[in-house]
Design a protein around this nucleic acid. Structure first.
Length: 828
DNA sequence: GACCTGCTGCGGGTTG
């Protein structure tokens, strides 16, 4: 149930919240209706989810309840002495934790409560860590990982006795991933240790808000979502191509828009320029720096592979207003607000509705003012995505974040944590974890397999003592007897895994960040490369550290990373598809009108009820282009699937290229193709079996297994301060484990988990199935255009990339583009 | 003349 905050009801009017209202008044504020509503519900003993945009007083809404409770009860004001905390505040980000701890501390002080507020994250002060550890903090701000750590101490059960309230900030960020699952387990533990406390989640707008509440509060199925302040209106504008200035048909960098972006940057004081990839951010930063008229210190770069010190510098500049522009990736999507930012720009595809909203919201918060983002297209078809995002926002079509279920690696980790944290009884813990959303369906046999796994590693590994982590004592209690195992486990707590990266350092010390081994492998000492917004020269590579010196200038490749795939979200893709057929009045659609005319004339326009297929024969062979608009990952699986099935009908050699709109299947030999065959190739029946055969499942599962093995505690983590392990080392140990298990214990729970995750995450099987079913219901427009079309051209250029040098590639693309332009000139 | 693909997040210590 979703309730909007109304005027406070009678109970509140009776004045239970008077102390806070008075305090607010003294600050010159007036509590909002949703705040008083949240306080009232808290005082009535309720848990719930508070749905409200950032910067709207949600902190005081969530903190107010426990404050009021304490103000009316002298016993609750007494500082805790080992049984604390009273309030546990969970946030997914360290930086946010710091900010929150400060804000909560000021409030506590302002109200004259003798409480201690402490921060418990990896980088918290020793004092704060000690307070947390000894249960002497009244208010504790913590991350899901640090909470797991606290639960791993033998006296954990006595350190949460005073708990009255748990607040989970930015719950939408955790809901859809394994970090959220780890937190679900932690919360279930807290409910056991301290029955009766209340839990409040804070969430931004989300497609599955009700589900978000149910996952957070499985123990309170009739709890409510309180809607806070109205979400800020967000407007989207596009840096339209100038009259006659056309946009490229392919590509994603957007540097052709540099002069116009540059002008926009100097219209205001401070801007955030968002890109989709780290390499793209590096390129844009470099391009801007080459024409930057002000002090270089006013332009900065921010992404996840930069040294935290460099990132902090950029953030500080945004905070104190000295920064003019920061080029950033998602590393600045979240977290602390930067009131000095006047304007947000997004280069290239927004990828998702929620993502664009989030970025738009990073601009200055002024009461009553709407959020705004200026979209900068890198290629023509992206214009449609901007219009689609605007349309989706208008009717509230925002993405859901589906919560994971049954992640046995996380469960195994949690079980070892609790075995450390005073030990557990199998049956009691079974009931406890079944109380979470993620493991509500856990059966006895699987639970037993998890227990066997932590006790002896499973049958194939039982001879190796390092996998026998947990012992069962005479009372049937599961415990960790070995201190080394305890240390190892605490070191590998958490669900975030990443492969070893090479850190980049100056000879005289001073880290710049990290790059991937694969990128450095292409360089020799003396070579130059672009990273961290600088031109660097590689001096030498020592283990997992690259020593560099600053190069005056010169080229060299820009650092690249092989990150996630970020497929276009289903919501956005559907909207894009709809706009092709029903352009409406969006200015972006007017700008692509001639392009759509070409597409319609030479082939057909996509539509919600129509699937466009193009068959084009070139010297290379026969190309089939198909446009299901289902995102990269799905298209990859779909292309593999169709190649396999087609090969069964007729022997041939297949290759494919994919993007977010569709894929291109290339056949070495020309083949017959009609609608009936196409439909057969896309038949949803038997998809799973065919995928198993068609994609290299073994290799995918091997990779997925590496991450699962880490979370489950099978891989020995490198100790802090010691050299990081190279990818090859980790690959070797996880690969060995994988092979051993496959051979001697093929039913091992983690192997099954790896395969499941390959289907779910890498192949996006649920979305693939949905796409296939959806295609079944559509009419087919099987066209045979004489030349590449606006939709097929980008895929064709993509397919050339692997085969040609950059230069030849450029020439080929340019020539093809020129030919196309001539052919289509009469239409455009 | 149009072109360089792929994000983010966390985490030790039983002592000073």
């Amino acid at each position: 149930m979703n309730v909007a905050a109304r005027a406070p009801r009678k109970t509140a009017a009776k004045g239970r919240d008077a102390p806070l209202v008075a305090w607010f008044a003294a600050q010159g504020w007036k509590p909002a209706a949703f705040q008083r509503e949240t306080w009232r519900r808290y005082l009535d003993g309720e848990s719930g989810l508070l749905h409200t945009p950032t910067g709207s007083g949600k902190t005081l809404a969530a903190f107010g309840g426990p404050l009021l409770e304490a103000l009316s009860d002298p016993a609750a004001q007494r500082p805790v002495t080992g049984e604390g905390p009273r309030v546990l505040w969970v946030t997914p980000l360290r930086a946010l934790a710091v900010d929150t701890a400060r804000a909560l501390g000021q409030t506590v002080q302002g109200l004259g409560l003798p409480w201690t507020v402490a921060l418990r994250t990896g980088d918290a002060s020793a004092r704060d860590k000690r307070l947390a550890r000894q249960g002497k903090a009244d208010v504790l701000v913590i991350t899901p990982e640090s909470l797991a750590l606290l639960l791993s101490y033998a006296d954990a059960s006595s350190r949460f006795r005073a708990l009255r309230c748990v607040v989970v900030d930015e719950w939408h960020e955790l809901l859809g991933n394994k970090r959220g699952v780890l937190l679900q387990l932690g919360l279930a533990r807290l409910r056991r240790l301290s029955p009766g406390h209340r839990t409040w989640g804070l969430s931004a707008t989300l497609g599955n808000l009700d589900e978000a509440r149910e996952v957070l509060l499985p123990q309170a199925p009739d709890s409510v979502s309180v809607s806070g302040a109205k979400p800020r209106k967000v407007t989207i504008s596009t840096l339209m191509p100038e009259r006659d200035g056309r946009l490229p048909w392919a590509g994603h960098l957007g540097l052709s828009q540099l002069p116009r972006v540059f002008k926009r940057l100097f219209d205001v004081r401070a801007s955030l320029l968002f890109t989709n990839t780290r390499a793209q951010a590096e390129l844009w930063h470099r391009a801007l720096a080459s024409i930057w008229p002000e002090s270089p210190a006013t332009l900065a770069l921010h992404h996840g592979s930069l040294d935290p010190k460099l990132r902090a510098l950029a953030e500080q500049g945004l905070r104190d207003g000295s920064m003019r522009c920061v080029v950033a990736t998602s590393s600045l999507d979240l977290g602390v607000d930067f009131p000095a930012v006047d304007q947000v720009l997004q280069v290239g595809s927004p990828k998702g509705v929620g993502r664009l909203l989030q970025r738009a919201g990073r601009a200055k918060h002024r009461p009553g003012e709407s959020g705004h983002v200026i979209c900068v297209p890198a290629q023509a078809l992206e214009l449609i995505e901007y219009a689609a995002a605007r349309a989706a926002i208008a009717h509230g079509g925002i993405e859901s974040r589906p919560p994971p279920r049954g992640s046995l690696d996380v469960l195994a980790q949690h079980a070892v944590t609790l075995a450390l944290g005073g030990g557990f009884q199998a049956d009691a813990l079974y009931e406890e974890v079944r109380g979470t959303h993620a493991y509500a369906g856990l059966d006895r046999a699987t639970w037993q397999a998890v227990l066997d796994f932590i006790v002896q590693g499973g049958q194939a590994l039982s001879n190796y003592p390092e996998f026998r982590r947990v012992e069962i004592d005479a009372e049937g209690c599961y415990r960790v007897p070995d201190r080394r195992i305890a240390l190892r486990h605490r070191l590998s707590i958490g669900t975030i895994t990443s492969d070893g990266a090479v850190s980049v350092k100056y000879l005289r010390g001073g880290g710049l960040g990290s790059v991937e081994e694969g990128f450095l492998a292409r360089l020799r000492p003396g070579d130059r490369f672009q990273f961290a917004g600088r031109t660097l020269q590689l001096v030498r590579l020592e283990g997992m550290t690259a020593y560099v010196r600053r190069a005056k200038d010169g080229d060299g490749p820009v650092a690249t990373w092989q990150g996630g795939r970020m497929p276009l979200s289903t919501q956005l893709a559907r909207e894009v598809e709809r706009l092709y057929a029903h352009p409406g009045t969006h200015p972006e659609m007017r700008a692509v009108a001639s392009l759509l005319r070409i597409q319609a004339d030479a082939s057909a326009l996509p539509d919600s009820g129509r699937l466009v297929a193009e068959r084009i024969v070139t010297r290379k062979g026969m190309h089939l282009f198909l446009f299901p608009f289902a995102g990269r990952a799905v298209h990859e699986a779909l292309a593999a699937l169709m190649a396999l099935r087609w090969g069964r009908v007729q022997a041939n050699t297949f290759s494919y290229t994919v993007n977010d709109y569709g894929f291109m299947l290339t056949l070495a030999e020309t083949a017959e193709l009609d609608e009936a065959l196409l439909r057969r190739l896309m038949d949803p029946a038997g998809v799973m079996d065919d995928l198993r055969e068609g994609v290299n499942l073994g290799e995918l599962a091997r990779r997925q297994f590496r991450e699962i093995a880490r979370v489950a505690g099978l891989l020995v983590p490198s100790l802090p301060g010691r050299a990081a392990k190279s990818l090859r080392q980790v690959q070797a140990s996880s690969g060995l484990l994988y092979d051993v298990l496959r051979r001697y214990d093929p039913g091992h729970l983690l192997l099954a988990q790896a395969e499941r995750e390959v289907f779910e995450f890498q192949l996006e099987a649920p979305r693939l199935l949905a796409a296939l079913r959806d295609c079944q219901g559509r009419s087919l427009a099987l066209c045979e255009p004489k030349a590449l079309t606006p939709l097929s051209f980008p895929l064709w250029t993509e397919s050339l990339r692997g085969q040609l040098s950059t230069e030849t590639w450029q020439t080929r693309v340019a020539r093809a583009a020129a030919q196309l332009q001539k052919r289509y000139a009469r239409l455009a």
